[in-house]
Design a protein around this nucleic acid. Structure first.
Length: 310
DNA sequence: ACTTGAATGT
C-alpha cells in the first residue's frame, strides 16, 4: 500500500534566488529603519557583509541614511568608501548626511568626486549640493552648479529652485534670488519665508517686513520667521505685537513660535509674560520638546525664578 | 529608493 501520497507542492516551496534575495533585502531594510543608534546598526551591517549584500545599492542606501540620521556620518562615510561604483542615490545620501552634520565642504567635495566619476547628476543630488553651497556661503561653486543644472535641464524642479533662492539669499545676492523666484511657476510661500530670513540675516529687517506684508496667506512658519526676525534684531515689542497679530488672524503658534517668544521674555526679564507663554504648552498640540524645555528653563532662570526652572 | 521644502539665543 502507498504510504507516501503524491501531493502537490505548496506554493513558494522552492523560491527562485531572485525572490529570496528580494525578501532578504526587504527584511534588512526593515531592520535598518528601526535603528535608533549606531550600536544597533553595526550588528546588522555585519550580517549584511556575511550575507554578501555589501554592494546592494538599495541596502547600502538605507545603511547610509540611517547612519547619518544616528549622527554617525563618519560611519556612513566609511561604508560609502567600500562601494565599487556608487550610483547617484548613494552619492545623494552621503551628501545629505554631510549637510545634516554641518560638514558642508565635505558635501561639496563628494559632489565633485561624483562629477569626476562621470556619474550623471539628477535634480535631487543637485538640490543636496546646492543646500551645502548655500549653508557654506559657497557662492562660486553654487553659481557653477547652477549653470551646469541649466545645461542638464535640472533647474526646473521645485527643490532645485528653492535651494537656489536660499543660496543666493544667504549670500546676499538678492537680485539673483528674486530672478530665480520669478521663474517659479507660483508665488511660493516657502521661498518667500526663506527670503524673509535671508534679509534678516543681512540686517535688512525693514525689507523683510515688506516681503512679509506682501504675503497674502501667511502660515505659521511665515509668521514665526518674521517674529524671529524682530527678535534677532532686538525689536522685542514688534515681535510681541506680531505674536498677538497672528493669533488675532486665527493662526496658531507652534513649538518654534513659542521658543522665539520665550526668548523675548528672557531678554526682557518678563516673568509674568513668560508664565503666560508657558501656558501655551499643551494647547494647540504644542509639545514640551527639547527646544521648548530648554527655552522655558532659560526663561525662568533669567527671570530670577530658579524654582520654576525645575 | 529621496525632496511638501521654510522658521528654534545667550
Amino acid at each position: 500500500m502507498a504510504v507516501v501520497g503524491n501531493y502537490p507542492l505548496p506554493p513558494n516551496s522552492n523560491p527562485s534566488p531572485r525572490t529570496k534575495h528580494s525578501q532578504e533585502r526587504k527584511q534588512i531594510i526593515y531592520l535598518l529603519q528601526k535603528c535608533k543608534n549606531i550600536n544597533q546598526i553595526t550588528p546588522i551591517h555585519a550580517q549584511i557583509i556575511r550575507n554578501g549584500h555589501e554592494q546592494d545599492p538599495f541596502i547600502v542606501f538605507e545603511l547610509l541614511r540611517v547612519s547619518s540620521n544616528c549622527n554617525s556620518i563618519d560611519y556612513a562615510s566609511k561604508v560609502f568608501q567600500q562601494i565599487q561604483n556608487p550610483n547617484v542615490y548613494l552619492y545623494t545620501a552621503l551628501i545629505d548626511g554631510f549637510v545634516k552634520s554641518g560638514s558642508y565642504l565635505d558635501g561639496i567635495r563628494v559632489y565633485s568626486q561624483m562629477v569626476e566619476a562621470c556619474v550623471m547628476p539628477d535634480n535631487y543630488v543637485v538640490g543636496s549640493v546646492l543646500k551645502a553651497c548655500g549653508s557654506q556661503l559657497g557662492l562660486k561653486e553654487g553659481r557653477e552648479i547652477h549653470a551646469q543644472a541649466l545645461k542638464l535641464s535640472l533647474s526646473s524642479s521645485r527643490s532645485v529652485r528653492m535651494k537656489l533662492v536660499e543660496l543666493y539669499g544667504k549670500c546676499g545676492e538678492f537680485e539673483d534670488a528674486w530672478r530665480v523666484f520669478d521663474e517659479m511657476p507660483e508665488r511660493d510661500i516657502v521661498a518667500l519665508t526663506v527670503m524673509i530670513s535671508c534679509y534678516v540675516d543681512h540686517g535688512l529687517v525693514e525689507e523683510a517686513r515688506n516681503i512679509f506684508d506682501g504675503v497674502q496667506t501667511k502660515d505659521t512658519v511665515c509668521w514665526t520667521a518674521m517674529i524671529d526676525g524682530f527678535v534677532r534684531n532686538g525689536e522685542m515689542n514688534k515681535a510681541l505685537e506680531l505674536f498677538r497679530d497672528m493669533q488675532r488672524e486665527g493662526m496658531r503658534p507652534n513649538e518654534v513660535t513659542i521658543v522665539c517668544v520665550l526668548s523675548v521674555c528672557s531678554q526682557l526679564g518678563a516673568l509674568e509674560l513668560g508664565r503666560w507663554v508657558h501656558s501655551y504648552v499643551g494647547k494647540y498640540g504644542i509639545e514640551l520638546n527639547h527646544f521648548v524645555g530648554s527655552a522655558l528653563i532659560n526663561m525662568y532662570s533669567r527671570c530670577g525664578s530658579i524654582d520654576e526652572a525645575e
